[in-house]
């Protein structure tokens, strides 16, 4: 592919390499380092003049450092006369801060969108935004890819009893996502909602729907400390589910997440590799990974060639 360069930030070099390999390209030369005062320094090691540049950087780990690194890389490419700079952000940082949920709360996802635009990004490719309205925070095109086709493929290939399963949302907010998957698998869905019986009583989780003698598959867009999803798993087992799986696009797994998963009754906790999982998998054998590099690679290829990206919303490249 002529006139295309792919660079990797330091957040997820393994994913960047997989994307480059699938496209038959070498990763562009870039040096990212920190000065003694902890400022980020980026040096692009090859010409990008007139090139279609893609920078892969996920919102994970040292999130602010990675965000600044991405902004500096975008700006470096832009002022080095790149024709177009596309930020490939598999897991969008600050995506949960997408609305004023209480007084004086900042809409940080909008701030990040402004920062990306100001730094010189011409296009964003991301995956399973926490709320797809985040696309509207930008004045540039945003392709919000879906992990759903890859998730469906994984379910059919790895859960023998998938025809006798119920897709479950761990909270009411995820009901729409869950019904989409349930419809495509032609199975039932259920959801768990928090119920407060008395003003000073702790939330009680109530299962709405039937999972008795079925495999329960919890589906959500992300798992952070895993409190909700682990409580949900306990609830499903006590409601008669034979097995419980959790499938999550973005496995953040911060704080007590790993120990919670190890102590919970999951058959498997399945995440995509929008965030690196190698270290976590060493400490938690229940974590399994769906590779989505081919979806991102195909989105890059189609964008570069001026083809439609929408086909990827319902199909998964081999």
């Amino acid at each position: 592919m002529p006139n295309i360069k792919i660079f990797s930030g330091s957040s997820h070099q393994d994913l960047s390499q997989k994307i480059a390999d699938r496209l038959g390209l070498e990763l562009g030369k870039v040096v990212t380092k920190k000065f003694s005062n902890q400022e980020t320094c980026v040096e692009i090691g090859e010409s990008v003049r007139g090139e279609d540049v893609y920078i892969v950087q996920s919102g994970c780990g040292e999130i602010n450092d990675n965000l600044m690194e991405l902004l500096i890389m975008i700006n470096a490419c832009k002022i080095a006369s790149a024709t177009r700079v596309t930020a490939v952000i598999p897991c969008f940082p600050y995506a949960r801060q997408d609305k004023k949920d209480k007084s004086r709360a900042p809409i940080s996802a909008k701030l990040v969108a402004n920062m990306l635009s100001v730094s010189g990004a011409d296009h964003i490719i991301t995956m399973d935004l926490h709320a797809s309205q985040i696309q509207g925070f930008f004045d540039i095109p945003v392709d919000n890819l879906y992990a759903e086709p890859a998730v469906l493929k994984w379910i059919k290939e790895n859960i023998p009893e998938w025809k006798n399963c119920t897709i479950v949302s761990p909270d009411a907010g995820g009901a729409k996502r869950v019904t989409s998957i349930a419809d495509r698998l032609n199975v039932d869905f259920a959801l768990i909602h928090k119920e407060r019986k008395k003003a000073n009583e702790v939330d009680r989780m109530v299962l709405v729907g039937d999972v008795k003698d079925r495999v329960a598959i919890l589906v959500d867009d992300m798992a952070d400390t895993c409190g909700t999803v682990c409580h949900a798993a306990d609830k499903l087992i006590s409601a008669g589910a034979t097995k419980v799986y959790a499938i999550l696009t973005h496995g953040i797994f911060s704080g007590p997440a790993i120990s919670r998963i190890n102590n919970a009754c999951f058959e498997a906790v399945v995440v995509t590799n929008t965030i690196p999982q190698e270290e976590k998998m060493k400490h938690c054998p229940k974590i399994q990974v769906i590779d989505i590099s081919m979806i991102l690679a195909e989105a890059i290829r189609r964008t570069h060639n001026g083809e439609s990206v929408s086909y990827l919303f319902s199909h998964v490249p081999l």
């Binding site: 195909e298 060639n305 001026g306 083809e307 086909y311």
Partner: peptide, 19 residues
Amino acid sequence: TVKNIGAIHPSLEIPLLIP
């Protein structure tokens, strides 16, 4: 869409279960 001839690795697509 019709694939660009210039693509290095034209991906094979497998349609999934339509709702």
